[in-house]
Design a protein around this nucleic acid. Structure first.
Lengths: 346, 346
DNA sequence: AGTTTAATGGATAACGTTTGCCACTGTATC
DNA sequence: GATACAGTGGCAAACGTTATCCATTAAACT
């Protein structure tokens, strides 16, 4: 790997000048010298050492991402958004999986700091009462006070910048939509208990049901994965009657619910209407009714905010979610009577 | 952030000694001094500067990952495997999306080298005839010769270490399995044309069909995503008769095929048997017949190989794939006559 | 002519580590 | 008693950059 000094020597200038030419500097350099340095760099295949730059400038162009589960499209899309925007700004993204475990999050957080990350993005929400949460919060708060940009893309108990979707409203609107189709027996399949974002979604669901004087039914306390949805359906089927509609805490669970229903011979949406939250790519192909959270955009916002440090300190607004109706059907008995959104088929 | 010098001062020793205590060194340090340094580090909250270490040692504990599409579970699982194993070895994973574009791959590759990554993992295969492939290969070969560990987890035209699954055999075995169920009219829904890994799978399929004297039918030349599978099915349905079985180039496409069939009212596996390749989490919930590629393990192997540089130079074997029968059914007309694997339902 | 000013380039001191080399102990060996 | 040697610790030179000062020149003012 060619160094700046070698380039400087070849171009017969000082390292200072070479540095000024090759990496942005306000210091003026005459046109011919600039060109000779550039050609020297070209022939030598010069690549700046990020390590040296980071050491010198006390911060590297690194954005750390702490995700709960990269296999969940929710986090994959977030990560993707971060990566794209980061790359635009010349930043690089370090990915860390933490499996929703505060201890692991803390470890990863520390590693990210060792690497002088300019900013760190927490993608998932925290879990109420999970051991290690307090220690994590303390450490994060320390880092924030020390100037590291920390962004949380979900509800979190520490003092970071927060860019979060209104989970409560998303779930509320979605449930209202299902109600507006005439359904009354709507179940909510929620994933991990304690996960703040999920709890908020449960609350939104309950409120909508309460307002409609419909009986809420929340079940499922496994994970946030497809398998969890499938298990919940198996449970529902075993228990007897299926609800008219099922609202899921996220798209993955919803897809699992679809799989469970389909493989058990039920027809969607004729027998049951299913909805998810997230708007991830995985649900789209099934025509899943969902609330699209602009995840890629959300991640991009976080990355841009971090990359822009120094300059604009204004915290970006969280983008709006949007209801995306899929293949749901109006309730059979009240069909036509209620304000119907119609049945949209693919 | 506390520095080594501060720790040394507090412990009343030299930086050298502090360094030796805090970061592994063969140089012996007496027990009491070691302890006082450790406690000093503790109280100061010392965190080593990865940048300084990288600069000094000319290589940082970074593994770069160049993925085609992090939203595809195939790459997500690979990435996950890499990340887990990397973390175990104290390495950190930089994620770069390159969208199967050699130009982007080259850019990302360069950025990764700037960050002195100890190794770089290419997750996806290359695309024959894609512009920029030659330049990428040249650059990679240069890096390899310069000592950077480059690992390809799919067929690639450059001189990197390769740990690749036998795509040809995977597809061949899978097709043979479908044939063994008595199916004759088996279509192959292949994704992107030119993608080496896919081409190999097509060949495996063709060979199995040839050997069975069945008529091959390859269609679909969109992407590798669920949507592509759905489109292919729409095409098949519009064209008239559906095949008895559909083998897909990957699980994502297969899931899309399932979605297309289900939402069009077909029953799986009674009407059509569907199979994918990959064994990703996404297919599991549907009981998809697939060839499980040990992706997490594969990624882990790459990471371990890179992290182990210096020591063991032996290139790991690619792990074996395995056929995972799901909800497929024997052909109706020959049911019972052929060596039947039976119908496995979930 | 004297003086400010802008434009340009060079030296050089950091940034926080690691490590090769030397120095100083004791203790064992001849 | 001289020599060797293992055990410890410190000094100081890197690693590749950037940024702060200076130095030089030339142009543009009084």
């Amino acid at each position: 790997m060619a160094t700046l000094r070698e380039v400087a020597e070849l171009a017969a200038v000082s390292v200072a000048t070479a540095s000024r030419v090759l990496n942005g500097s306000a210091h003026p350099v005459s046109r011919d010298i600039r060109e000779s340095v550039q050609s020297a760099a070209q022939t030598l295949g010069y690549t700046p050492s990020a390590a040296a730059q980071a050491l010198k400038q006390q911060r590297s162009k690194i954005i750390g991402v702490i995700a709960s589960d990269i296999l969940d499209p929710y986090f994959a899309e977030l990560t993707r958004g971060i990566e794209i925007e980061a790359a635009k700004a010349g930043f690089v993204t370090i990915l860390a999986n933490a499996n929703r475990d505060p201890e692991q999050e803390r470890t990863k957080f520390r590693v990210l700091r060792e690497h002088q990350a300019s900013g760190i993005v927490f993608c998932g929400s925290d879990i109420e009462g999970s051991p290690g949460t307090a220690e994590l919060a303390r450490e994060v708060n320390l880092a924030v006070r020390a100037g590291t940009r920390v962004v949380a893309l979900a509800p979190r108990g520490f003092d970071s910048t927060k860019i979060v979707i209104d989970n409560h409203a998303a779930s509320y609107e979605l449930t209202r939509y299902m109600l507006s189709l005439g359904h009354r027996r709507i179940a909510f399949v929620g994933g991990m208990p304690g996960l703040t974002a999920v709890e908020q979604r449960v609350i939104g669901y309950r409120r909508a049901m309460f307002e409609a004087q419909a009986l809420p039914m929340v079940l499922g306390n496994a994970g946030m994965r497809q398998e969890s949805g499938r298990e919940a359906v198996a449970h529902l089927i075993a228990a007897g009657e299926l609800p008219e509609a099922i609202v899921c805490a996220n798209d993955e669970i919803a897809v699992g619910v679809l799989a469970g229903l389909w493989t058990s011979g039920y027809r969607i949406p004729d027998d049951v209407s299913v909805a998810g939250i997230g708007g991830t790519r995985g649900g789209a192909v099934f025509g899943l009714t969902t609330v699209t959270l602009p995840l890629v955009e959300l991640g991009g916002l976080a990355a841009a905010y971090i990359a822009d440090a120094g300059r604009s300190p204004k915290i970006p607004e969280a983008p709006q979610f949007e209801l995306r109706p899929g293949t749901t059907t109006a309730a059979k008995d009240t069909s036509g009577s209620s304000r119907s959104y119609g049945r949209s088929t693919l």
